[in-house]
Design a protein around this nucleic acid. Sequence first.
DNA 1: GCTACTGTACTATCTCACTAGTACACGCGT
DNA 2: ACGCGTGTACTAGTGAGATAGTACAGTAGC
Lengths: 133, 133
Amino acid sequence: MILQIDPSSGLAIYDQIVRQLKFAVASGKLRPGELVPSVRELSKQLAINPNTVARAYRQLQDEEVLESVRGLGMQMAAGSAKRCRADRKKLISARLKEVFREARQSGLLRSDISSLIEKELKSFPETVEADTP
Amino acid sequence: MILQIDPSSGLAIYDQIVRQLKFAVASGKLRPGELVPSVRELSKQLAINPNTVARAYRQLQDEEVLESVRGLGMQMAAGSAKRCRADRKKLISARLKEVFREARQSGLLRSDISSLIEKELKSFPETVEADTP
DNA sequence: GCTACTGTACTATCTCACTAGTACACGCGT
DNA sequence: ACGCGTGTACTAGTGAGATAGTACAGTAGC
């Protein structure tokens, strides 16, 4: 379970964690009942404060993506995969729309954007998603 | 000269102003010597604090996009169009790359992304840019 | 000269995200 | 029972962005 944080990305750190865990659930990298790294462990890995991790986990709990096992850790909640797949699509779609909105506003031509997109799509793998139980 | 601000966008308000004025210069909507709205005027239009506008204008001045005319206002600096066109491409490209990076990480398929992109490209006008002097 | 605008330059305050630290209760293994 | 992990729940502080307010100097129009 590898998460990455970019403090300069403009997204709050806890939000980055929330997103990445949702993606992990959506893509089957995280399975129902599987424990996520503990608050202290992940904060060490990411070199951030435990409270920041705790905040992300709390939100994911509120959204029924994770559930807490007192004294043991936090695990993926059963039945959250479908919800996360829908969320994943919404999250990515929203960002893409926003970039396109700005690109339109900026006065760039469609051809300018298309060539940028083609470049990026080239490095985009067409892979089969992990099995979901 | 119409600027828009979205406080929930994740970009600092002053940064949104900076970007939009760069785009206006890049696309020829703002011409050399043309005055931008005054600090007080724009802050009224956007319902934000004058100091926030002043900060954006200061940055644009530092980057030689705008130049100040004491008692008169701020005008577009001669020769900044070329620089802004390069900046525009960089700014949009950077955001696009970032969205693609996250999309790849999220486990979405290329086909999922492609269909989202096609939808957005449909609404992307292929227009001729305003003349630049 | 006066008025109304302009940018510039402060000071003080607020909010949010994040950090740091601490303490408690729970669960597991020995 | 003890030790070591876990999440949870605080308190206090920092930095960035934003707000509010004020004052000064410059410019233009009357």
